[in-house]
Design a protein around this nucleic acid. Structure first.
Length: 770
DNA sequence: CTAGGGTTAG
């Protein structure tokens, strides 16, 4: 068989098993001339590149040659530079080059260097000095490869010097310069160069399209695309991805239709973009019809677009299908495939399966860590998210966290109220010079707000050059939790002044802030200005009216609602009924709530508290009885404090904490002190013994007392005690902590799931709350 | 022989 015959045969192969057959067939005949053998093996390796064969197989072919010539080496370099597998590329390329150098029978021609430079540069290996020493730097192709290296990996200034020195630059050099300027955010120079170019080709135009897309300038991207003479599939793909990556998947799909009518044939890249656009549109049927069409036309998707397909099934919740694709990919899986599967699991909350894959995967990149960390963070496992982040920092593979990591970890710290850990995380942001974007700053605002440092939250907000609606919403929610109503309203005015449109979350924050601050009129005005209030806004306004005692007005609002009220609305009314001792409305709200959420213990407790405050003890017993009958268990309350970078969690009845003995001793001592000081004004306001609480089935009620006692034991007198509780703080505990703050002269900040309580000298900042 | 497009995480 001649080489030409073999070539035409090889390029007809369309999958790996056909390649294997050909390989086996050739092995039989490998008794030929060494030169012919080399030609054959090079051909096979370039087929590996084309068919994206896994590295193990490609290396097998390479090693089947005893003394490969320069062409065989070169095809291996090409394989490495075109492959998307995680190959540990640097080691491979470097060792191949070393092997070549050691072979005295080889003459390394100049043509090897451009491809060598390209394949090594993705691993950060520079050949600039080396090829200069060899006297090759003046070769057009070598020179271009070096220019491309600096354009891609920076510093782009080096590319600029090289380019300026050239007196015979080629179109490829110009194109690389344009690419480099866009890549490093230098729009002006890119455009300047484009305008003065002696000639342009489709590559030039496509670079401009992609450059504009990078800065989200879709109009100009489209303009360059439309002006492109002689478009090809890459031009179309560039424009498609411009839409897809800037949140316009519908537009991408529209353009895809144009493409189908244009006569240009889509390729793998096109399918990947289109499939991912379908999944971001959330249009399952569209995606299904695509898959069907592909099957009809017998188009074989490569591992690359199969990852997009996997993700699409995962996003619509078809996890078994996604997993099937993942399993079928076998040796074709790369890091991105693994990452996609991991986030598929975290999305549905299956953290165990996600973690199993995470631990098993052969190579992790930043996205792998980020997927797992954010998976924990978004499924309420903040502590695990932080632990995994620590593992990431200490891991041997030396991966640097990026902004995405930081956003997840910082917000996890916020959820926990872990300010010390949060500050440590911020120090890492500085150490690695991680540039924060709007969402990075938003996460900082969230952290500070959740940790009670409103000054820092405000300062961060003011430092931001651009803010989005989330920035405002986060700070507003912070003010709301602290009861700073006017500050929240000022922010609403400010955001309107900056032409940022408030959304439903904004209004929930504002109404909550007004309600906590007792700003009835202001809140009511805001509520009336909401164009289409939803149930949450109604719940807020019922709370607003209810807290100031306008319960009948609140009831009227409920009766006038167009939509069916949800539990939150009645919950607000029930809580207000408790504050203002309105048994009639309390019973009404409770009856609705018992229908809507029969297993929410909070409603029963609130109702029984209403009866208790009216001295109707028979009814208290009746409510407790019905709880027992229905099988409603009081939700477990827990509290935690941060101490020396660790979270210390407390649940009443659990004595596993190492300082438990001391904590309970201090608790008893404080109880005695209070009784002696005569703080027994109310009989519900007793610092009860734990055993007694357990008997009364009050387990979990006062975990915050344990946390406060622990902090009293371990911190010095000046330190502010910060405690977080997962549920709402109950009334007698609130009173007790007020007393502790007076007796011990300590400042205590208690955050519950509703708001902040800042205790100092026997007074709480939310004085109007109870 | 170069140069432009692709899947995953907040």
């Amino acid at each position: 068989m001649s080489l030409a015959e073999l070539e035409s045969l090889a390029y007809k192969l369309c999958n790996l098993s056909q390649l294997r057959q050909l390989h086996a067939h050739l092995l039989v005949k490998l008794s030929l001339h060494h030169h012919t053998q080399c030609q054959w093996v090079s051909l096979l390796i370039s087929q590996c590149t084309r068919l994206r064969a896994p590295p193990s197989y490609t290396r097998l072919i390479f090693h089947s040659m005893p003394r490969p010539n320069v062409h065989v080496f070169t095809s291996m370099f090409k394989y490495y530079s075109n492959s998307n597998f995680n190959l540990g590329g640097s080691d491979q390329v470097a060792s191949l080059y070393r092997q070549m150098q050691q072979r005295s029978d080889l003459t390394i021609g100049t043509f090897v260097y451009p491809v060598l430079i390209k394949s090594a540069s993705s691993a950060g290996i520079q050949f600039h000095a080396h090829v200069r020493k060899l006297g090759l730097a003046s070769d057009h192709y070598v020179r271009n490869a070096i220019l491309a290296f600096y354009a891609k990996y920076g510093p782009v200034e080096h590319a600029r010097y090289l380019f300026a020195e050239m007196h015979d630059s080629t179109l490829a050099d110009w194109n690389n310069m344009i690419f480099g300027y866009w890549k490093w955010g230098n729009k002006d120079d890119a455009c300047k160069l484009f305008d003065m170019m002696p000639e342009r080709n489709v590559v030039t135009w496509t670079s401009m399209v992609t450059g504009c897309a990078r800065i989200k300038d879709l109009d100009n991207a489209r303009r360059y695309f439309d002006q492109t003479p002689l478009k090809n599939v890459v031009s179309w793909n560039a424009m498609l991805s411009a839409y897809a990556q800037n949140g316009c998947p519908e537009e991408a799909l529209r353009l895809f239709d144009d493409m189908m009518n244009s006569g240009d044939q889509p390729n793998e890249t096109t399918w990947a973009i289109v499939i991912s656009s379908c999944s971001s549109c959330g249009d399952c049927s569209l995606a299904d019809s695509f898959v069907q069409k592909l099957n009809q036309k017998q188009i074989h998707l490569s591992y690359f677009s199969k990852t997009a397909l996997l993700d699409m099934y995962a996003k619509r919740g078809s996890l078994p299908t996604a997993r099937q694709i993942f399993d079928e990919l076998g040796a074709y899986r790369n890091t991105i495939t693994w990452n996609a599967m991991i986030s598929a699991y975290t999305r549905v909350g299956d953290l165990a399966s996600a973690r199993e894959l995470f631990d098993k995967m052969p190579q992790k990149d930043v996205v792998s860590w980020n997927s797992m960390i954010s998976g924990y963070a978004q499924n309420g496992q903040s502590a695990l998210a932080i632990d995994l982040f620590k593992d990431m920092i200490n891991a041997a593979d030396g991966l640097k966290p990026d902004e995405v990591t930081m956003v997840s970890v910082i917000s996890a710290c916020g959820h926990l109220g872990a300010l010390d850990i949060g500050n440590w995380v911020i120090s890492i942001v500085r150490k690695h010079h991680i540039k924060l974007s709007v969402s990075g700053y938003n996460s900082l605002i969230f952290l500070y707000s959740k940790c009670g440092s409103m000054e820092d939250a405000k300062m961060t907000f003011q430092e931001m050059k651009t803010r989005d609606v989330v920035s405002y919403n986060t700070l507003i929610a912070g003010f709301a939790a602290h009861g700073h109503g006017m500050e929240a309203i000022k922010l609403l005015l400010k955001m309107k002044g900056e032409f940022i449109e408030p959304d439903r979350v904004t209004y929930i924050g504002i109404l909550t802030a007004c309600s906590h601050a007792g700003l009835l009129e202001e809140g009511w005005k805001v509520f009336e200005s909401i164009k289409a209030p939803d149930v949450h806004h109604y719940a807020c306004v019922v709370d607003l009216l209810g807290r100031v005692g306008k319960l009948d007005e609140a009831k009227e609002i409920i009766d006038g609602m167009l939509k069916e009220p949800h539990a939150g609305v009645y919950g607000s009314l029930l809580n207000a009924s408790r504050i203002h001792k309105r048994i009639d409305l309390g019973e009404f709200a409770a009856s609705k709530l018992f229908e809507l959420e029969p297993h929410n213990s909070g409603n029963y407790i609130l109702l029984s508290n209403i009866y208790a405050s009216a001295g109707r003890w028979d009814d208290v017993v009746r409510v407790r009885e019905s709880m027992r009958k229905i099988g409603v268990k009081k939700a477990t309350g827990w509290s935690w404090v941060e101490y020396k970078g660790k979270m210390h969690k407390f649940i009443v009845g659990d004595r596993s904490h190492e300082r438990s003995e001391d904590i309970y001793r201090l608790l008893a001592e404080l109880g005695r002190k209070m009784r002696n000081a005569g703080y027994m004004a109310d009989k519900t306001c007793v610092l009860r013994d734990v055993e007694e609480e357990e008997k009364e089935e009050m387990v979990g009620t006062h975990s915050e007392k344990l946390a406060v006692c622990f902090a009293l034991l371990v911190t010095d007198a000046e330190a502010v005690i910060r405690v977080v509780k997962n549920l709402r703080v109950c009334w007698d505990c609130h009173t007790v902590i007020k007393m502790i703050s007076k007796l011990e002269g300590r400042k205590i900040i208690l955050r519950d799931n509703n708001r902040f309580h800042c205790f100092s000298d026997g007074v709480c900042s939310c004085g109007d709350y109870w």
